[in-house]
Computed example of a mutant assay.
Amino acid sequence: MSWNVYLSGEIHTDWREQIIQSCEEKGLDIQFTSAVTDHGSSDAAGDGLGEESHSFWRDHKSAKVNAIRTQTLIKQCDLAVIRFGDKYKQWNAAFDAGYCAAQDKPFITLHSDDIIHPLKEVDAAAQAWATTTDQVVDILEYLLTMK
């Protein structure tokens, strides 16, 4: 069985690489996709549409261009993993979780237990909540190998 897993959320740690490497080591047939994780590139996604004098409009254009990628990849995935980090508030991750829920796309949240309360509605819509990348990999292994 082959799956397409979308990795969403914080970009300041190597959680994506940990999941990908562990799944490769287990021989799991998974194609991973993700939003653009280079902050500068993401911020500049709309710059080709013309220079802006106000940062709001630059951000607005780039958000719309990035949404093309995000929405397309979420629609194509079998499952999303949405990471909420401790250092920054990831409003984009919360939006992706809501988009998954609206699309009836299953998702796993990945975050520490000290932010359970602010994420209670997001976690309530998720099919699972994990606190470590190993837990995510265990879930993926179960989903792909159980008959």
Rank of each mutant, 00 (worst) to 15 (best):
S2L: 15
S2W: 12
W3P: 00
V5T: 05
V5H: 05
V5L: 08
V5W: 07
L7D: 03
S8Q: 10
S8N: 08
G9F: 07
H12V: 10
T13V: 09
T13E: 15
Q18E: 15
I20Q: 13
I20Y: 03
Q21S: 14
S22Y: 01
C23N: 02
C23A: 14
C23Q: 01
C23P: 04
C23I: 02
E24K: 15
K26N: 10
K26L: 15
D29T: 08
I30M: 03
I30Y: 05
F32G: 03
T33S: 15
T33E: 09
A35Q: 14
V36M: 10
D38L: 09
G40H: 10
S42D: 06
S42C: 11
S42P: 00
A44W: 01
A44T: 05
A45M: 11
A45L: 15
A45Q: 06
G46P: 03
G46N: 05
D47C: 04
D47R: 05
G48W: 13
L49H: 08
G50R: 04
G50C: 06
S53G: 13
F56Q: 02
W57K: 03
R58S: 15
H60W: 14
A63L: 12
A63V: 05
V65G: 02
V65D: 04
N66F: 02
N66E: 13
N66K: 07
A67W: 12
T70Y: 01
Q71N: 14
Q71T: 09
T72L: 09
L73Y: 10
K75H: 13
Q76K: 14
Q76Y: 02
Q76M: 10
C77H: 01
C77K: 00
D78F: 08
D78R: 06
L79W: 04
L79E: 01
L79G: 03
I82M: 04
R83E: 05
R83T: 00
F84W: 03
F84A: 00
D86E: 12
K87T: 12
Y88G: 00
Y88N: 08
Q90W: 01
W91N: 05
A93V: 00
A94N: 00
D96Y: 00
G98W: 09
Y99N: 03
Y99S: 04
C100S: 04
A101E: 09
A101F: 14
A102S: 13
A102R: 11
Q103V: 01
Q103S: 09
K105V: 07
F107E: 01
I108E: 03
I108C: 08
I108Q: 03
T109R: 01
H111C: 04
S112E: 13
I116C: 05
L119Q: 02
L119C: 06
K120S: 14
V122M: 07
A125M: 15
A126C: 09
A126L: 07
Q127W: 11
A130M: 15
A130W: 02
T131H: 13
T131E: 13
T131V: 13
T133E: 15
D134A: 15
D134N: 14
Q135T: 10
Q135H: 11
V136D: 03
V137I: 08
L140Q: 05
E141L: 07
L143N: 09
L143D: 05
L144H: 10
L144R: 05
L144N: 14
T145P: 09
M146K: 15
K147C: 05
